[in-house]
Structure formats: C-alpha cells, structure tokens
C-alpha cells in the first residue's frame, strides 16, 4: 500500500488560554519522510496529537488522502491506515513482544469473541496469520531473539523497536514517529535509522518524524517543517532549512538559549 498525503490548514489549538498552535499549515507529500522540528514547547507534540485525534483543533481542517476532515478520531486511525509510536513508550506490559506486535492488526480482526472461543475457521486463520506476520516483522527489525519475552523486560532501545514493529505490521499509509531515537545510544540510533529507511523503501509509507537529534533529522528527512511558539516558521528540504535565518534565530536566539540539546543544528 502506498503512502498517503496529509495536509493541515490553519490549525489552531489552545490550552487554558495559552495558544499552543496558531494557524499552522502543514503539507506532507505522499511517500515523504517529513520531519517536524522546533524547540521544546514549539507545538510538535500537539500537532501529532491533533493528527491522532487526541486533541480537537479549535480551527482549521485536515485533508487526509483526499478526505476533508474537521478533526480526526482516534478510534478510526488504524482503519485510515495511520499508526504511530509514542514519545513515552506505550506498550502493553502484560504481553509478550509478539503479542504486542499482533495488537497492530486489531482493526483487521473480523472474527467475533465467540468465534475465537470456539475456534471458528476464520478466528484460527486470523490468529495464525497475525502470528506469522508478527514473527516476520520482528525478524525484519532484528527482534527474533526476544520475540517471546515479556515486553517490559526489554532494553529501552528494543522496546522502541517493538513499538515500531507494532506500528508497521498492518502496512500503514502514514506513520507518525514521536521521538523514535530519544534515549538511544549512538549505535542504536544508526540501526533505527536503517530500520525506518528500510520500512519506508519497503512500502512507500509516508513518515512524519518528530526528533530532537538534528543529525538524524538531516539524514533521514526529505522535507522539514520548523515550528516555534506554535507557528510554522519554515518548511523546506534539509539543505534549505539549514541555512534559513529564521530557523537559526529560533534555535540560537536568546529566547531558547536554555534548550541545550536543540542547539546542535550545525551538526
């Protein structure tokens, strides 16, 4: 399944009077890896949460794959072909790695609970199929060794990969990665970049990437949107962004001098 385009127009969001997003436009082409960057509090996560239907925008609209929507609904994401990973890992700790990844196929389940209890042909087929492709995707992400372990016994980096596997298993059209490299070692980052690249090349999925590590962003992205104080201040290719004076101001300007880890733009 090919990637889908998504466009946000004039999206506005506030929390208790504080504007988190002010009329933000975002234009993401099908099949791109599109990074959203900006200092802490710039509105990156708010934007992702709007795309996921967790927040409802006060103004603006969303076009996903030609459908015009005033807001997204969390419960319909999976059906639309949108999957995500979370900044703070959200895995189901009561399940094994494989079972977590199988959850990524939830929206494709057609068998009823009763069918599963009595073991109807469809339920058995679905279960076997889910198991099989979960194993396959785990192998692709180099997780075969830990596939039967309780997911919360894995290292942080491995858990991030399990999340990625769960997001990829259903063949999404839009993949949201919320700080997929946070807290990873340099070696883990290199592998993660390779996995994301490979997944993108494999299926042509559109990727929205939120990431603090500018090295990663510049290396992975086709295009970049820069947010600051809830506004879009720039959009373009990595090489354009690197020389954009507004972006350099936002990152190195006085107002954000305390954001140490963001100030590695030059890297």
């Amino acid at each position: 399944m090919a990637g889908a385009a998504i466009r946000l127009s004039g999206v506005t969001l506030s929390f208790g009077g504080i504007l988190a997003l002010k009329g933000v436009d975002l234009d993401i082409h099908a099949g791109d890896i599109h990074a959203i960057i900006g200092p802490n509090g710039a509105g990156k996560s708010s934007l992702v949460n709007i795309i996921c239907g967790i927040y409802r925008p006060e103004a603006g609209s969303i076009d996903f794959d030609g459908q015009h929507l005033s807001r997204m609904e969390t419960g319909r994401l999976a059906k639309l072909g949108i999957t995500r990973t979370f900044q703070n890992i959200v895995l189901f700790k009561g399940m094994s790695v494989t079972q977590n990844v199988m959850m990524g196929l939830t929206h494709k389940t057609r068998s009823t609970p009763w069918g599963q209890i009595i073991g109807s042909a469809r339920a058995r087929r679905e279960e076997a199929h889910a198991y099989e492709i979960a194993r396959a995707i785990l192998a692709r992400l180099d997780l075969t060794q830990v596939q039967d372990r309780a997911v919360n016994t894995l290292s942080y980096g491995a858990q991030k990969r399990v999340e990625l596997a769960r997001a990829l298993i259903a063949g999404p059209r839009l993949l949201l990665l919320d700080e997929p490299m946070a807290g990873m070692t340099a070696g883990e980052k290199v592998r993660m970049i390779a996995f994301i690249r490979e997944a993108q090349a494999h299926s042509g999925v559109t990727v929205i990437l939120i990431e603090h590590d500018m090295g990663v962003v510049m290396e992975l992205s086709d295009r970049i949107t820069v947010l600051d104080h809830g506004k879009r201040i720039a959009q373009g290719t990595p090489s354009e962004i690197q020389v954009n004076p507004d972006v350099i101001d936002a990152y190195l300007g006085v107002a954000h001098a305390d954001d140490g880890d963001d100030a590695v733009l030059a890297a």
Binding site: T74, T83, L91, F92, G94, M95, M103, G104, T106
Partner: peptide, 17 residues
C-alpha cells in the same frame, strides 16, 4: 489481548483500533 491492552494503556489500545 484487547482486554490486556485496555488495562495497560487505554490510549494505546484506542490508537490501534
């Protein structure tokens, strides 16, 4: 699995459908 997912993370479960 869906039951445990709801227990462990309602949001995570909802996002997955």
């Amino acid at each position: 699995r869906a039951l445990i997912a709801v227990r462990d993370s309602e949001l995570g479960a909802r996002v997955l459908g």
